[in-house]
Design a protein around this nucleic acid. Sequence first.
DNA 1: CTCTGGATGATCT
DNA 2: GATCATCCAGAGA
Length: 216
Amino acid sequence: MTERPLPREFFDRPSHEVAPDLLGKVLVHGPVAVRLTEVEAYGPPGTDPASHTYRGRTKRNAVMFGPPGHVYVYFTYGMHYCVNLVCLPEGLGSAVLIRAGEVVEGVEAARARRGPVVRDRDLARGPARLTVALGLGREHNGLDACDGGALRILEGDPPADPPGVVGERPPVILAGPRTGISTAVETPWRFWFAGNPTVSPYRRHVPRRRSSTSGV
DNA sequence: CTCTGGATGATCT
DNA sequence: GATCATCCAGAGA
């Protein structure tokens, strides 16, 4: 694996421009490396109702308002963590949610965390599964992915064949609505590699009430 | 493959 | 009190 970290400037632009460029890049934590195949962009305050920063800065989303190239890790549904890469300069809270990828190094370590019966393509297929495969949690919130530490985002390997030579073509990137959100459902800020088996299935948001409202 | 409902707690109104 | 950038198991096609 080529150890070439993305420069911080890569993230110093709108998240919906960063997002498609992140596909094929490699997120590394310790022994596990994941080649990104699916991402979603979330915009700055007041511009994107689906973004955690839409209503301004809070304790939870503070990292999104920090410098670009850092990771925002949040806890949701009482049991899952998801990881984002922060975009734009300090003060403009926005980020790219990392939704899925292919484990290209450390399959053994990833399987140890995800379980022995999980198929290879499912190890990091989905945002919460991906954080488990990488071993990320609350304690990693705010870390810098561009400083060459244990958690880092890399350029990834260049195509094996030079231009013009018959071989693998660059992957086709598709865009569509984001997954599982209840607002701005038509904004096409989800990006993925067409036909890649590690991309998670699209799921529409389903409003759900908790069962048992009165204690009978 | 699709659809449904349960799990579980931090966060925000 | 309601919602939530999810996952899993189980049922059905």
